[in-house]
Amino acid sequence: MKITKEEVEYVAKLARMYLSKEEAKMFTGQLDKILDYINLLNELDVNDVQPTSQSVSKRNVLRKDTADNTFKKEESLKNAPSQDKGFFKVPKVIE
């Protein structure tokens, strides 16, 4: 598999990042090299292997349904880049 410039651009769009022409070219080259290395995994037969997504074997970590607001409103908003009347403010969303 070889990653194309179009795929790099698609991925950047999914990840909400702009790439300059040079960056797109650079990332395409670098990611291609990394993916080429990663393709090493293809030499293994893993058909009968179960995937591991965590290295803990815990099950059913649950909390009781009790309500307890931990933050004061100021704390929730204290890092907001833009806020008004208790809301976070963002550029207009057109729906």
């Binding site: 598999m1 990663i38 995994l41 293809n42 293994l44 893993v46 292997v49 179960q50 995937p51 591991t52 997504s53 290295s55």
Partner: peptide
């Protein structure tokens, strides 16, 4: 499947 799932399976082998 080609990357993420395969990697998770090899993770099992490494474990």
């Amino acid at each position: 499947d080609a990357y993420y799932l395969r990697a998770q399976k090899v993770r099992t082998l490494i474990t």
